[in-house]
Every structure is written in C-alpha cells, then in structure tokens.
Amino acid sequence: MRYYVRKFAFYLVALWAALTLNFFIPRLLPGNPVDILMARLSQRGGTVDPSARRAFELMLGTNSSESLFQQYISYLGNMLRGDLGISVSAFPAPVSEVIATALPWTLMLVGIATFLSFAFGIVLGTFVGWRRGTWLDSLVPATTVLSAVPYFWLALLLVAVLSSAWGWFPLQGGYDILLSPGWNGEFIGSAIYYGTLPALTIVISSVGGWLLGMRNMMVSSTAEDYVLTAKAKGLRDSRIMIKYAARNAVLPSVAGFAISLGFVVSGAVITEQVFSYPGIGSKLLQAVQNNDYALMQGIFLVITVAVLGANLVVDLLYAVIDPRTRVSG
C-alpha cells in the first residue's frame, strides 16, 4: 500500500512542478507574449474582451499590479478548471477544444507504435541475450546504428523511397481528406493506411534501444543462480528462457518504459511534422509559428499530464509483475 501512496504523491509533485514551470517560463524569458497575442487577436478581428486578456495574463505574465503569488494562485485555479484560454491560430476556439480534436490522433499513432517497438525490442533482445555467442550478437551494433540516425532524416528518406518513388504509402496526412471523419470502416481503414508509415518509422528508430537494454539484462539474468536451478531441474530451454531469465530481465525495461514515454512524445512532434499528421505535435508547431502562446502552453501541459499519467499506469503495472515492490515499497 505504501508503494501506491508514494507513487501517487510523486506524480502529484511532478504535476505541480510542470504547472509551475509552465507559469514561470514565459515570465523569465525575454519578450512580451501577452501584447503579441492581443495584437494577433485583434488582427483576426477578435474582440478583446477583458476576461480573455485576463486568462492570457495569468498564463503568460505581464506587468500588472497583482503580486506574483496572487497571479500564481489564480493561474493554478484556471488550470484546475481546465480553462487554458483561447487559441489565436484557431480563433475563436478555446485551446482545450483544439487539443481535444488533435489528441486522439497522437495517442493512437504514438501509443500503438511505441507498444509495437517495445514488444519487438523485448522479444528480439530476449533471443539475442539468450543465444549469446552466436551470429545474433551482430544485431546489437546494427540496431545501434539505427538509433544514431536522426529520426526525421530517416523518415524523410523512407517517404522519398516508399511513398514518392514506389507509391506504397500516402505522402502525408492522417486520413484520406475526401472522407469525413467518423467511426465507420472506410474511415478507420484509411486512418490505418495513412498511419502505417509514420508508425513504421517510429518503430525502426526506437526498437534498437529496447533490444540493447533487454539483451544486456538477459546477459545478467542468465548468469543468476535461479537459471542454474532451472537447468538442473531439467526444464525445457524455452521455459527457462521465458519464465526464468526473461521474466526477471524484463523488469528494468518495464520501469524504463515509463521514463521513455517522455522521449516518445518528443519524437512524435517531429513525426507529425514530417508527415503533416493531424496530431498534437503539429498543433504545437503551428502554435509556435503563429506565436499562439496560449495554445503552445496548453499543449505542453496536456503532453506532460499524458506522460505523467502513462508513467503512473506503468508504475502500477510494475508492482503487479514484480512482487517484491509491493512489500519493500
């Protein structure tokens, strides 16, 4: 039980830290984002109503008479209510609405691709670590090369070859724009078709890390006494490999999965830029290019919350697969 309490407390602290970071970044850095934002807003013919301005000010900081502490408290209040202000680039939609439409795309693409990459990496790593001293060892440096390649460069090359030259995949987008989004077979099929290449690029560039980590842990765990016991018991090799060696070796990878999610989301920003995918990453860049600071910060917050939430889930899962954490917590 203590384990769970500690975990929840940690993520609350992390969430608070992210909110605070979000509050201070625009106040510490040069420039006056509120004025830029208001100017943009009036260009677009938006009426600058005082409450909108107030929301911006709370989020981005300005030379108001209010003390920093009061601003901070009101800001936290706004965040808890989910009031992230109004988007300038998608005026007059509220930031939360813009995010809500983009988020499912990213979650599906990145979620599935990451899971596949993790699964492949673990399975391959298990074999490579178990069959140490065979030709499989050469897979390790090979996948390392893939991890050292700049992701977008690899993705663009794949697009040039697989989409432009051979026409196997669409060039960009998240679905056939002739279709209207909805829960029907045709649209979902199109979304899967459009998502395959982006997902493939994510898997290719990240599988090496999982493979290496799992392989190294397998090398350690096959040297453990319980594997020797299993051999002495006359168990089949496949059972020793899975139930004894891999079952123990996978623990650090699962713990690492949580940490890697942050990097995965980061990668998604670039993926979506390469493929003009309608997810939250391309919205973030769109916000940056249009100085839509409110949207930008809202997205940063949502991404952070999503990553923290996923981390929490993984931590809870970890307690299930490693019985020792439940007592020693």
Partner: peptide
C-alpha cells in the same frame, strides 16, 4: 525524477519559442 518525467522536447520547443 521530476525532470525525467517532464517530456524534454516539448519543453525545449516551448522555451525556444519564447526566446526571440
């Protein structure tokens, strides 16, 4: 640990965007 779970690149993007 907090710095580790806050996603890096989005943070970098946000910071870079605020710097002219």
């Amino acid at each position: 640990n907090v710095m580790l779970v806050i996603p890096g690149l989005p943070l970098v993007i946000v910071i870079s965007a605020f710097v002219p």
